[in-house]
């Protein structure tokens, strides 16, 4: 997979002063453009890895209640953007499928926010992800990746996904750097406004 002649051949080293890793996750159905978006904005060639988790369980339809173990494996890809001398933003592209959420707490706790990438022809693919993000209390925006001329307005998308009015919903083209960058800027602006609002609220 990553055939390398030398371990020190790390693609692009971080600056010496890098000290603060930040996480943003892009979730969405298969083929919606997650990897494409990571690639568009990352300063390194996107990398991929996996996490596995073994859960002990008791078979419910097993009369003898024998312990068995299930191993969940989730693959994800990621890229990186150095923001300043200290901060490095890691951008994860992750499938929104069910088993992935078993690993959310282990992998993605501390994530600042999420981009839910949707294909309007397959909106139903994102319902589960939206539900889980709400459950985990992770702030998110919705970005529609347009493969073809969109058939619906963004307001119709908001309605179809039953999104609260404050959640940003935007169009994007995951293949272009500017558009993908705009998605991240929109998320960052939203997170900033949420934080500023709650900071004001807590000092009153």
């Amino acid at each position: 997979m990553h055939s390398r002649t030398s371990d020190s051949a790390v693609d692009a080293p971080l600056r010496e002063s890098a000290s603060d890793g930040l996480k943003i996750v892009i979730v969405g159905g298969f083929g919606v453009g997650k990897t494409t978006m990571v690639q568009s904005v990352s300063e390194i060639r996107p990398l991929s890895t996996e996490e596995t988790m073994t859960q002990a369980g008791i078979g419910i339809d097993d009369a003898s209640f024998v312990q068995h173990k299930t191993t969940t494996t989730v693959a994800f890809d990621f890229g990186r953007i150095s923001l300043d001398e200290q901060m490095v933003l890691y951008l994860f592209g992750a499938p929104g499928q069910e088993r992935f959420w078993f690993l959310w707490d282990r992998l993605f706790s501390g994530t600042l926010g999420a981009v839910v990438l949707v294909d309007t022809n397959r909106l139903a693919d994102s319902w589960y992800a939206l539900d889980r993000l709400e459950h985990h209390g992770t702030p998110f925006i919705v970005a529609r990746n347009n493969f073809t001329e969109p058939q619906h307005t963004l307001e119709e998308v908001r309605e179809a996904l039953d999104l609260p009015p404050e959640v940003p919903v935007i169009d994007c083209d995951a293949r272009t750097r500017d558009s993908s960058k705009n998605v991240l800027v929109t998320l960052a602006r939203y997170l900033y406004s949420l934080s500023a609002t709650s900071a004001v609220g807590s000092t009153v």
């Binding site: 990553h2 080293p13 990398l47 890895t49 996490e51 494996t73 890691y90 282990r106």
Partner: peptide
Amino acid sequence: RGPLSVVEISSYLDLPVS
């Protein structure tokens, strides 16, 4: 030798994060 994230190490080593 320079700073590198846990997840990048995992990818380069081809081993799960845990």
